[in-house]
Design a protein around this nucleic acid. Sequence first.
DNA 1: AAAAAACCGTACCAGTGGGTACGCTTGCTC
DNA 2: GAGCAAGCGTACCCACTGGTACGGTTTTTT
Lengths: 201, 201
Amino acid sequence: MKAASLNQRRDEIMDIAVEILTERGYRDTSMLEVAKRASASKETLYAWFGDKRGLFEAVIQRNAQAVQTVLAHHLAGNAPAERVLMAFGCALLELLLGDGAVAINRAAISEARADPTLAQTLASAGREATLPAFIQFLELHRKRGVLRIDTPSEAAEDFLGLLLGDTQVRRLLGLLSAPRKAQINARAARATHAFLRLYAA
Amino acid sequence: MKAASLNQRRDEIMDIAVEILTERGYRDTSMLEVAKRASASKETLYAWFGDKRGLFEAVIQRNAQAVQTVLAHHLAGNAPAERVLMAFGCALLELLLGDGAVAINRAAISEARADPTLAQTLASAGREATLPAFIQFLELHRKRGVLRIDTPSEAAEDFLGLLLGDTQVRRLLGLLSAPRKAQINARAARATHAFLRLYAA
DNA sequence: AAAAAACCGTACCAGTGGGTACGCTTGCTC
DNA sequence: GAGCAAGCGTACCCACTGGTACGGTTTTTT
């Protein structure tokens, strides 16, 4: 049970890191405050995560992993395309526009120059892990004759575009607050509908 | 000629500010370096722009203004819808994905928590100034019977989504470099084509 | 040409945060 | 229960940056 409670503690610290990250932004999140609020010592933080970057890299990886499993689950079933698109869209919106994800993306973006590592990690653990599954889903339905698609990867990007519009950027800029369930449903429905108008066989 | 050369000097300083912003990011852009590279004194900078935030607020405003006039120009003519969409799309991509614009958006995003002012300014001088013109353009062509659109504002967002996909975010994350002319054309063409498939009467 | 305003360069101040070192406590192992 | 490792709290070092003050020089105005 030692290993279990150790991981639990790690999670606890990462939760707090995200919490402070959302309140303050990356640069104004001090290791001291993370330590204090977690009732940990700075030295422990540095021992466990290496440095500030390491801490948030761990945070990003954990988060992306969680996202990945949720999305993969939605794509796995054998439901009709429309239903899958709808569910996938809702999940994606919820995961991408939530406060935590926004804070993380902001961090990766602000450090993109000084330290591309965060963005790299975010990309490879996030988009690069999920998109192939979505493309595979599109190809499956193309073979079934449900969708008429030339280039699945482009079609995938179209769906993302229709789904998000410029909402994500506006969210990152702080011009929007996290959307409610109803708004998420509406967006996903609109995107699904438009996508099918474009690509339904 | 005093006023002219004064404005010229202001522009010069703002150019340098953007230059350093693109190489270092907002937080790591020091007023001292801006002053030095502009052969100006810190005190002058503070006298002219108030503080760091003021300097970059001025930068944002100037930039947004430039963007605004370019885009408005494309929307103004009386060309067929497809041609306008194509031109507008290209211009928008070029302006939104260029190094300068990316640096500015990154700055606004990183400071979104600590100081929402930059993002606010960016929004009101940028999107809020241009989108209405685009919506008006859509409405015009609806009335002409060229486009079948329920809600112009939603259609506008669809076009933006199709145009950008998640390219802008990936660009902000530093995963992409500024696109070449050919890529811009391809994207704009695809978006225009898809948009017309969705909304052509 | 003289007076006045603007401006450059430099030095200075205060606050801050990442990262390290160290003593003391806690809790697990044997 | 003794020994040992892990971890908490604090203090410390160092570098840096935003913002201000000041003296000397250039430029404008009159």
